[in-house]
Amino acid sequence: MNIFRLTGDLSHLAAIIILLLKIWKTRSCAGISGKSQLLFALVFTTRYLDLFTSFISLYNTSMKLIYVACSYATVYLIYMKFKATYDGNHDTFRVEFLVVPVGGLSFLVNHDFSPLEILWTFSIYLESVAILPQLFMISKTGEAETITTHYLFFLGLYRALYLINWIWRYYFEGFFDLIAVVAGVVQTILYCDFFYLYVTKVLKGKKLSLPA
């Protein structure tokens, strides 16, 4: 565990908590893509099946349980408790265009052709693109609430910090996982445009809105 990995995990946790609190405090999930949140719940479910097969550390187990629980809580708030505030008309990204190719790819390109490993690979590939429905929704409405941009910032920062973690681990531990690294690079690149808007607009106190 190095500092980049730890801050990456904490950044991920911050993103998840920010989103949950935003929905809970405002009693509304307006502007949030339920589809992205469903995909993230699927990502955590398929990745953390190893909770049943191997124990790594108390930290590892607790974080996994927190991520899974929070992602299901978020989906519950969007599709059940605050369903009336869910902006389904703008959440129109076709998720099958992500899930089907990603499913196919995880069968073709993986470290080991076993059920758990394929599901882990699926989750890594799916996570890299799971934010697309949310970004699509923002591009459609042309704006995002500031709190939503904070959520996106920490969610993007998490994978960027993991990239530094992987460079660190390559040099100091000889650790290298090509699948995770390539997917992590793709995932981080998807946030670049947003990072630019976040720094040039949101951090200067302006609302994130896109030109019409």
Partner: peptide
Amino acid sequence: DLNINPKDEL
């Protein structure tokens, strides 16, 4: 070494 299992990262 592909570090297949266990997965120590989240």
